[in-house]
Every structure is written in C-alpha cells, then in structure tokens.
C-alpha cells in the first residue's frame, strides 16, 4: 500500500494542515509520498521532504499550478494517483475544491472530512452537522479522502529526508484563471492550529468590539474566531467563521463570547478540550457544551478577564 498526500502550501512553505494529514496517512499505514504542485515551489518541496515519515516527494513545478486552480491540478493528481491505494488531502477549502474533481476523473467516490481511521478501507466522518458520526467503508481501488485537521495531531515537520522526483506534464486546461486574492494578514496563530481560540458572535454588536477579544487572544497567544452571524453582519471577514460550513477547530481552550450555540456553530468547535461560554442569557444552548459558563454581560466581563490574565 502506498499513500499519496496532496500538499497544501503557498510555494514557500507547507501549510500546517498537511502535517495532520500525514498523521492520518500513517494510521492507514504504508509508504507515504507527498505531491507538491505549484510554481517556484522548491522551498515547499524541501519542507515536505523533511516531514517525519515521508519517503518520497513528487514535485510538479509549473506556472499552471501557481494558484492551485482545480481545473489544472486535478488532471495532474489523477495522472499520478494510479500508483497509489489512497490519495489524501486536508479538508481545507483548497482540498475540498480539488479532491472531488480528482475523484470524478478517476471515476471513484470520495470520502470527505474523515475524523478517524478504523482500518485501511474504513473511516469515521461526521454527518448532519456532527450530530451523527458515520462509519463508512470505501472499496474503491483508489481511495480519495479528505482529512479533518482538527481530528489528527500534526506529525513532526522535521526529521525526515525523503527523496524528491519531478513528475507530470503541465496541464493547463485554459478554462479558468486567477484574478486576485484578498488574504487576511494577522500576527496571531492560524485559527485551525491555535491552542486557544476566542470567538465572538452577534452579541459583540460590531467589528470594533472584536478588539476586546483580540486583547484576550494576545495575552494567551490565541486566535480570534467568529460565528456566522458575526460574519454575515459584516463585523469580521469570512475567514474567521467557525462551524459546520466554516472552519473546524479543536483547541485546548475555546472561549465563545456572545454566541448562542446553534448546532451549526457547535459542529465547528465542540471537540475543543475545554470550552468556556460567556453569555448574558443563562438559557443559551452554548452552556450545554461549556465546561465553564459565565452568565454575564460581555462588555463587563471581557475587560475584567483581559486584566486578570
């Protein structure tokens, strides 16, 4: 058995989610190879080669892969996939965009967003916003899978010394092009990798008030997240959304402030180790999943909390 992982990277470095996917691959068992497809991506390939447990890195360095357009990348992955029993990618927006296109080119079904490996062909994944955990068996010859990062530890980024080979012709479908990107810049840790996440909901009232959460996040080296309602209301950008249809996080500590606890929000954070809820409504459903609940007005509680940390 050998497993191919499609790396998530920005041409210069590997994204953390790739390391969680390596752990899922090692639980399946077998040789682990990483495909780094990009443009001027040698640095990312070198980073992939030093990941512990990886025996080979396939490098496809071509301008057509620079922005990870699925139309160009999927034929490459499908071409390389023939040698493997499993093809894995992180269940991030880029993995979700790419992998079903690969699966359809290979004429196989895909298993999305696995949270556990039961055996080489059987996996657990959440359905119905995480209210049901399904165990599914995948009997396809090539198993195309996306992996929920929050459910697997990151493997060590150092310690490996995989060989590197160049692969694949350039595929440029010529039907799509990259126009631009607005990427949020922040000195705080990435939401999905942070040990502490402090999230705000509609109760924050506006975007400026998120400074109250940032002050707390900065004291504990955490990231700031949000509910969908806070995103929809324009308080904060979409990349901060936690939930069924946003990011899935499982930090050591999750602090939900002014968030009611809709099932769609819980789906994205209820596997956090410790959950704190601050809400002025003592009946808010968020308290049903919180280890520590504080019934209080957030505008009084947050400054006090910031001071005491």
């Amino acid at each position: 058995m050998s497993i191919l992982i499609v790396a998530e990277h920005d041409n210069a470095s590997l994204k953390a989610a790739t390391l969680n996917t390596v752990t899922a691959a090692s639980e399946i068992g077998g040789d682990i190879h990483i495909l780094v497809a990009g443009s001027d991506c040698q640095a990312a390939a070198d980073a992939a080669a030093s990941v512990a447990g990886v025996s080979k890195v396939l490098v496809a360095d071509n301008a057509a892969y620079g922005h990870q357009l699925a139309e160009n990348l999927a034929p490459l992955v499908a071409e390389v996939a023939g040698d493997y029993s499993h093809v894995l990618a992180p269940a991030t927006t880029s993995g979700k965009n790419l992998m079903p296109r690969v699966a359809a080119l290979l004429d196989v079904d895909q298993v999305s967003d696995i949270i556990a490996v039961v055996s080489a062909d059987t996996f657990k994944r959440p359905i119905y916003a995480g209210n049901v955990i399904a165990t599914v068996k995948n009997e396809e010859a090539i198993k195309v899978i996306t992996v929920r990062g929050a459910a697997f530890d990151a493997s060590a980024a150092e310690g490996g010394s995989a060989e590197q080979t160049n692969v694949g012709a350039a595929h440029d479908a010529g039907i799509s092009s990259f126009v631009g990107e607005e990427v949020a810049k922040s000195d705080r840790p990435e939401l999905t990798a942070a040990k502490v996440v402090v999230s705000g909901g509609r109760g924050m009232q506006n975007g400026d008030n998120f400074a109250l959460l940032e002050a707390i996040a900065d004291k504990v080296g955490g990231a700031v997240g949000a509910s969908r309602a806070a995103v929809d209301a324009g308080f904060v950008p979409n990349d901060m959304q936690v939930g069924q249809t946003g990011k899935i996080v499982a930090p050591e500590l999750y602090v939900a402030v002014g968030i009611s606890g809709a099932i769609q929000h819980l789906a994205g954070m209820k596997d956090s180790k410790v959950i704190v809820a601050i809400n002025k409504d003592e009946d808010a459903p968020i308290f049903q999943v919180a280890d520590y609940g504080l019934v209080a007005d957030l505008f009084e509680a947050l400054p006090e909390l910031s001071e005491q940390l």
């Binding site: 357009l69 880029s94 126009v179 607005e182 990427v183």
Partner: peptide
C-alpha cells in the same frame, strides 16, 4: 477560501 477571498 480559508485565508480570505479569491477571485477567479
């Protein structure tokens, strides 16, 4: 997208 917004 995870990092923000992308236009294609």
């Amino acid at each position: 997208i995870d990092g923000g917004l992308q236009t294609v």
